[in-house]
Nucleic acid binder design. Structure first.
Lengths: 157, 157
DNA sequence: TATTGTTATACTCTATAACTATA
DNA sequence: TATAGTTATAGAGTATAACAATA
């Protein structure tokens, strides 16, 4: 607790005394948070024997979606989804189903087990997140508001 | 702009009216921001023909460091650093040098070109960051303080 | 004996190109 | 013709195990 306050105070003072160094400090802080977030995500996925891509796919499947849509969410070529879906299906976490009206499309849907793993994975991610566990309720609310505003206006939606 | 305000207002109202759904909303928001951050990082790295791992390595090398240290930073097995260093060295961005006092250790050091690329990459990352460009100066300062506190207290340092 | 970096191996993710079935 | 999904291929990241050089 003391350490946290000292570091935070040092950081804030540094910025206010040296506005020119603000961008550099911001970059360093963002890289640090990004690395921690990545680390937490990979650790959470590994707890369920999932790769990062498999975990991202599982978290993206609220109910069911065309494989094409999943490729767009993962921002990868559609051909990659075949293998990712294969491995998730082999483990019984998703199933491929037909879509009414267009027999070219295959919908990827979570199984009951898939839903269970996804929910536990989401909890693990939240627990491993570096940005939520050190803040009190008021700070979390402030942070949520800032992140919501920032993410809503980002070009990538 | 209108869209941003509407989305943000809807989000905040939702949370305040349904405190029980707070954790679920926070998870969704964090996943969204995480995906955007990942996307921005990969886009920035790709602009310099770098893979994510290569970009992370480049950004981690302030001056020079033992390959072992880099493996710890990347949180991967030390054997992987051999290949990553090979490709960065082939492009002239880093060089392997000896460490005085312990001939087992190889230091990885940025070349002048490596430093140039790293600086531009850092700028591109910051420009692509979803969390810094939609906020005004006061909001950014608040966000920096919250992130600094959160990341300083995280178990992974 | 322990540690650093390397090599060999296997699996996964990734993009590209060519293919099939369908629209 | 265009689109959805698949397959084949090649490059890269990853962990594991075994190895040489050094401590």
């Amino acid at each position: 607790m003391e350490v946290v306050k000292c570091l935070r105070a040092a950081y804030v003072r540094d910025v206010s005394e040296d506005p020119a160094g603000e961008a550099r400090d911001t970059a360093a802080l963002l890289m640090h948070v990004t690395e921690q977030t990545r680390s937490g995500f990979e650790t959470a996925a590994a707890e369920f024997d999932l790769t990062t891509a498999q975990a991202r796919a599982l978290l993206a499947l609220e109910s069911s979606a065309p494989m094409r849509s999943l490729a767009e969410h993962l921002r990868c070529d559609a051909s990659n989804v075949t293998g990712i879906a294969d491995r998730l299906e082999r483990r019984g976490l998703v199933v491929r189903t037909a879509q009414d009206g267009d027999r070219r499309v295959k919908l990827l849907a979570l199984t009951d087990e898939g839903r269970r793993v996804r929910d536990r994975l989401r909890d693990a991610m939240l627990a491993a997140s570096p940005v939520m566990n050190a803040l009190d309720a008021g700070e979390r609310r402030t942070l949520r508001g800032l992140l919501a505003k920032a993410s809503a206006s980002a070009p990538s939606g």
